[in-house]
Each structure stands twice: as structure tokens, then as C-alpha cells.
Write a protein that binds this DNA or RNA. Sequence first.
DNA 1: TTAGGGTTAG
Length: 659
Amino acid sequence: MASVSNAAKLTISFVSCCLMTFLSLNSEHLNSAEEPTLNALNMNALHKAVHFPQRFRFSSILSLNGILNPEIFKFNSFSTVLTDKTDSKPKISDQVSVISELISKQHWRKIRDILKESNPDEILQQLLDSEADPRVIIQYFRWLEGALGVLHSLDMYCRMLHLLFDGRVYSQVRKLLNGLVQNEKYSISEIFHKLSMSGDSFGVNSVLVDMLVQAYVRNSKLSMAVEALKRAWDYGFKLSVLSCNPVLSALADANDVKGMEYAFKEMIRRRIQPDIITFNTVISGFCKVGQLQKAGDCLEDIKIWGLSPSVVTYNALIDGYCKKGRIGKMNRADALLKEMRSMNICPNEITYNTLINGFCRDQNLSAAMRIFKEMQDKGLQPGVITCNTLIKGFCADGKMGDALDVQNVMFLLDLKPDIVTYNVLINGYCKKGMLKEARELLDDADEKGLTPTVITFNTLIDGYCKVGMMDEAVALQKLMMKRNVDPDISTYNCLINGFYRNGDAQAADNLLKTMKKIGHTADIVTYNIMVGALCKKGKTRKAARLLDEMLEMGLAPNHLMYNTIIDGYCREGNITAAMSLRMQMEKDGKRANVVTYNVLIKGLCIKGKLEEANQLLNEMLEKGLNPNRITYDIIKDEMIEKGFVPDIDGHLYTQSAVP
DNA sequence: TTAGGGTTAG
């Protein structure tokens, strides 16, 4: 290998240093969606230059000023400033020249005529070997696929990918990769094998694999993305944070926290430097499933990795505590707000909205209002989302007057209520049974030029169903269809439940049939409604059979469903069946929760089996489950009556020595 | 590529 002069080495190292500084300083300015491989590409170009300096000359643009000019960087990847001197491809042949011209002019009929005499694939080969513009070749490539139904070989795909990549036509690289992953014709090992056999070995393939992983994520092929991530290393491809982050994010969205953890560890093991987005993604993933301890550990890890937490980091953590925290969760959320301030990380509107939402969910409206005021004191203007959150808080508390006051504040703040504002208010009135007021709001939204959504209609339909106004509910369903708002599965669920609740099982069953006929699939809520209705009628065994039907449909029964059926068995006095279903639910990976224990304890108490009820109470404590008021209300009187006394904490019941 | 608000089972 040719050696590199010291001067060149120094230049490159200096430029590399500037480049890294630039990238870290300007990462916000770079549109990575448009240029996801920029960092990697630049490093590859550098890498290439270091090893083959004789093939490159440094353009005069490669000055400190040039490197530090974001405008230049936006439009020129680093490799742009390195000009390949030795690339001497064969001259374009006459036929190829004619074809290129025809493609450029989109004269496909003439091309068809030519193809009567020639092989389309051979022409593609010639085009790929020529100096024709990759933008032109890709048109022919696609036309062959679309118009002639040609299934390109993986070899052709790879050549096309390299050509487009070399021509820096990245948008087309992405499109081609989308096609490649969508048709699923080639496995990951086939693609990796072919890529490793073709192109150069200086990182372009790694960047292509990076883009391939992103294509898998973009096209919702998550398991393929993970497989690619796992196997890339075996083929010598070095992935970047730009492909790892989307995989982590998709795994977190899918609630696959184990997969996310694995991918993160794999990333570290492969020495792929995580960035703050990596940590924010992982933290948000942990928070989503309530693993707050691990999320907190990640906050510490950020510092270990020499990174600084951002406002997004704290927003994710605060949201995690607000939504998944236990006792004292809002104190912890408040403490995080103080902590971020002490670190000079400025809370933004999202931070305050998150906290307001947390306090509202906690029914602590005064604290929510305190935050609302505080954000304004700090110079942050509340937005529509802030107000909607507060309105929802007041509505949930049944305080419609306060909710309307917030709506008035919106006018003062020059904020226009949106359809969500109306949905929240309509829901508030519906929950209070004030259907007239709710309906008037729908008309008001219309007058204000806001388009009611499927949620607007569902809210109101459910309101009517809950007060037994089924005719009005059905009329509203017709109205929504007339206004081109398609009823969704929730619309049907509200109506079906309404019919069952109002004792019209026939109408509910008919609607179920109609719903299925027009292509809506029952979801977990539909099944819960059906199960609830059957259990109420004393047909628990029939309800239990729906569990199998669900599994066949690929739906996993949830706690509510198991608990409803267990409760049904208990009410029927069939404790054996209830206990056996409880075993089944645990086998299905659903741990019995407080409600499960409550219904079982209640069933045992009704049967007079207080010893066994007490054993279950013990068991739930041993498993770290906190009995709630309902638990004690169920057993208290009967236990005491039968000579059991609560222990000093009022928890366990023990046989009293005193009769 | 990361963070916040609206409907249905209970």
C-alpha cells in the first residue's frame, strides 16, 4: 500500500478534527433525513484518501473556511471535494447513447421497438457499464420492472445501488432500497453476501447497509431490521448510529423493550458510539413500559459517555413518572424539573404540558394550575395543547365551569380552540349525562369551521349509548357516514355495548354481523364487551370459549378479559373453573393482578371459604401486590365475623384467640 | 432518528 506523506496525514487529521467539531456544533442544522449517511460518507472519503492519496487531489475548496461553511456542507458531502482522477470507464457506445437519450425524453414506445431486437437485460448491463447518468439508468431500471414486469437479479440491484450511490443520488438509493425490502424477494444473507462481493471495501457497503436497515424500519419490517443489525458485523459492515437509532425507536414504539435493550447492548458491543438521540430513545422506551429505574440509570449513563442530557431527555423522564410512576410520582416529576433547571437545561412548552397532564391525571388541578401559571411567569406562552390538557383535567373532575373558563382564557391568549378542544368538552358533558350541551358543541364546532373527526362522533355516540338514547346514537352514526367520516371499530364498540347494556342483545348481535360483513375486525375491546355481556347473563362458559376464538384471530386476551371471566365463574359459584382459568392466564404470561385476587377472594368469601380467601390475601402480599380498599372491603366484615382479626397494619388476617 | 393533548371494554 502506498504510504501517505506526513503533510497529507497532518492535513487530513486537521481536517478530520475540524469536520468532527463542525458536525458536533452543527448537527442541528444538518438535515439528516435528506442526508442520513453524511457522517459516514465523509469519514469514508477521508479513509479512502488516507489509503490511496495518489488517486486523489484535494480541491481548493478544502479549506478551513469551506469546511466550516454549513452551506457548502449542506450541498457537498466531503467526498464532493475529492475528485477521483483514475476512474476511466469505457466510452459510451452509440446504442447506449441512443437509449439514454430516449429514456431522458421518456420515449418508451421507441424503446419497446428497440427491445424487439435486443435483450432488455443486456441493455441494462451496457447502461450500467457506461458513463450514462445514474438518474437516467434508474428510470430504465424501474420501467423494466413496472412496464415489462422484469424481476431484476440481486446482482443488478447491487450494481444499481452502487452506481446511484457513487452518483450521490441518495433519494433514489432510498427508493431502490424501499423496493428491495418491500418485495422481500431476497433474504438478508443473500443481500449481505452479494454486497460484500461487489463494490469497494472502503465503507460504501457499510453505508448502503446502514441505509438498508433504515429502509427495513421505514417499511415496518422491524424483525428484518433487527436481523440486519445483528448480522451486519459478520459480513464486516460497520453500521452507524444513524441506522441504530431508528431501530431502537421502532422497537420502543412496538413496546419491545427487551429487543430494544438487546439492540442497544449490541450497538455498544460493536463500538458504535451512541448519541443523545440514542439515549433519549432508550429512556423513552423504558418509560413507556414503566421501567423507570432503568430509564433513570440511562440518565447517569449519558454522563459516563461524555454526553449531556437534553430537554428531550428530561421531558421523556418526566412523562414516564407522570404516566407510570407510583406513590410520590409527581414529586419525582417536580424534582426532575428542578434538576433540569439546575443543569441549565431550559424547560420548554412540552415540559410544562407534560407536567400539567400529569397533575391533571392525578386529579390535582391546583398543582396543574400552578404549573400553568409558572410557565407564563417564565415567559412561555401556553399553547392549544396546554389548554386542552387543562380543560380535560377539569372535565375529568366534572368541573365544566372551570373547563369553560380555560376555554375563555384561550380567547384572551389569542389561541383558537381546535377540534380536540371540542372533543374534550363534548366528552366532559357526555360523562355528566348532559347530552344536549354536548350536541350543541358539535353544532358549534361546525359553525366555527372545524371538521368533526371520528373521535368527535364516537364520543357523542358513546354519550347517547350510556344514557340509553340508542335512536339518537344510531342517527349520529348515519350522520357521520353522510358527512364522509367513516365509523371505525370504536364506533361499533360503543354501539354494540350500548345495545347490550340496554338489553337489546339482538340488535348488538346484528350490528356485530354487519360490522364483520363490511370488513371491520373485532378488536380486544369488542371481545371484552361480548365477554362482559355473556358473563352478566350467566353464560360464563360461552364467554370462556371466546378466548380461543381470540387467540385464533391473533389477539391476546388482556387482564380485563381474564378477570371478567374469572369473576363470572365466581359469581356462578364455580371456584374450580375460576382457579383453573387463573392458572391459564399465568401460563399465557399474564400475572394475576389485584383485580384477579379481589374477584377470587370475593368468590371464596361468598362460598364461606375464609381460610382460602385469607391464603390468597397472603399470597398477593408475598408477590408484592398491594391489596386495595376493595380487597379489604370484601373480606373485612366476614373475616371479623368469623373470628379473624387484622394484624397491626390492618393487612393480614389471623385467627383470633378471642372468639 | 428523541419529548406533550382528544373516543370505545372496566
